[in-house]
């Protein structure tokens, strides 16, 4: 592959890095407990917790690094951090 060296880079192009591979713990969202407040999405440092059509929230596991802020901040304790591969 020939690298075309320009001095500029394209917007949003880090999306090629699937940082989900970093994860040790995986947040599992329990919609039964969820109050749809959206705090999980607001405080996700990756900006990858999205609101579904039904109003509930889910992370994009391709990018989720498993930091656990969403679980820690959820007022309903509706997000559980589960060890990957279990």
């Amino acid at each position: 592959m020939k690298l075309i060296i320009k001095t500029v880079t394209k917007p949003g192009s880090t999306r090629v890095n699937k940082t989900g591979a970093w994860r040790s713990f995986m947040p599992v969202f329990d919609h039964k407990l969820c109050s749809k407040c959206g705090i999980c999405a607001m405080y996700c440092p990756e900006g990858i917790v999205y609101k579904l059509e039904n109003g509930y929230y889910e992370p994009d596991y391709e990018f989720c690094k498993g930091c656990g802020i969403c679980a820690n901040e959820c007022p309903k304790k509706a997000i559980l951090m589960v060890l990957e591969g279990k």
Partner: peptide, 19 residues
């Protein structure tokens, strides 16, 4: 969707990425 795209190399739980 955030205007700061994911896939960056910030630590898990990074305050800078949040800010």
């Amino acid at each position: 969707m955030s205007l700061l795209a994911p896939g960056h190399r910030g630590c898990a739980g990074c305050c800078d990425a949040l800010a």
